[in-house]
Amino acid sequence: MTDATPAPQQADDILALAAQWRAAGEQVAVATVTETWGSSPRRAGSQLAVTVSGKMAGSVSGGCIEGAVADAAMKTIQTGVPQLLDFGITNERAWEVGLACGGKLKVFVEKLA
């Protein structure tokens, strides 16, 4: 058996990518979908990684709330305090950022220390 290196990078392995960024000295936050209701496009466990320098990878929705999550991530990077965000059609903030799918979801945002 010949084991070729490097192993193929999984297209959806956001955490591994975030860890690489962190190891390279970036300030990184990771957002993870923890719970969904209705027609949320990304299931629990889906991740979005962002850096202070402006890198972004992955997704927690179909693109509707990534902007708001990235803003929250910047705050978590500054304070070190994790946040549990709630997005849904009854949520004013979601209207603001436009959760067009009509789904509801919770997103946990944490800093990679």
Binding site: T2, D3, A4, P6, P8, Q10, A11, D12
Partner: peptide, 25 residues
């Protein structure tokens, strides 16, 4: 799709790293 792929073929001229980069052969 996130799969760990293993290619099996005893015919060495088919199963080359050139034809199949970055997978286990």
């Amino acid at each position: 799709l996130g799969l760990n792929v293993i290619v099996v073929d005893p015919r060495g001229s088919f199963a080359t790293a050139e034809r199949f980069p970055n997978v286990t052969i």
